[in-house]
Amino acid sequence: MAGEIDIFCKEPGEKRPQEKALAQAVNSTFEKMGFMEARPTDGEATQGHAITAVIDILTPSPARIFFSAPQQLGWNIAETFYGLEEMTMEAVGDMMKELLNTITGSLLSTIMPNQQFQLSIPRLCPELPAPQASSYVYQFNIDNKGIITIVLTDNPS
């Protein structure tokens, strides 16, 4: 039932299960789709224009996941994944939505394997949300080409 399942465990002092599952989901997605490596990092993401996608977890418990990459990195990933000679920003945006959708499904299948879940259609948004107490920020280095940022929040409002 909505609101009764803590998808993003907030137990103090314990390693949150979603951290390991997210790292697995991100690495598996990049490896299978483009033979790229994704390593968790505390490094600084490149400043400048970024492409950001967002998806809502509708059930069993409302939450929201953001996924952001510097524009150049997004471009590089899309070229690697799809091998297109002529890449467009629309294709890069499409890829960001598809990646977020895949990572989210993989993450939820791991942390709640016997639970049905429902997701929104992913969409692009202007930027990552401002930091807040109910959000968790994770970063991954992609093949030493740049850093992506993923923000999990259980407060979609």
Partner: peptide, 9 residues
């Protein structure tokens, strides 16, 4: 082919 699947589905 979907990211929204689980064993029951």
């Amino acid at each position: 082919v979907s990211s929204a699947g689980n064993p029951a589905h």
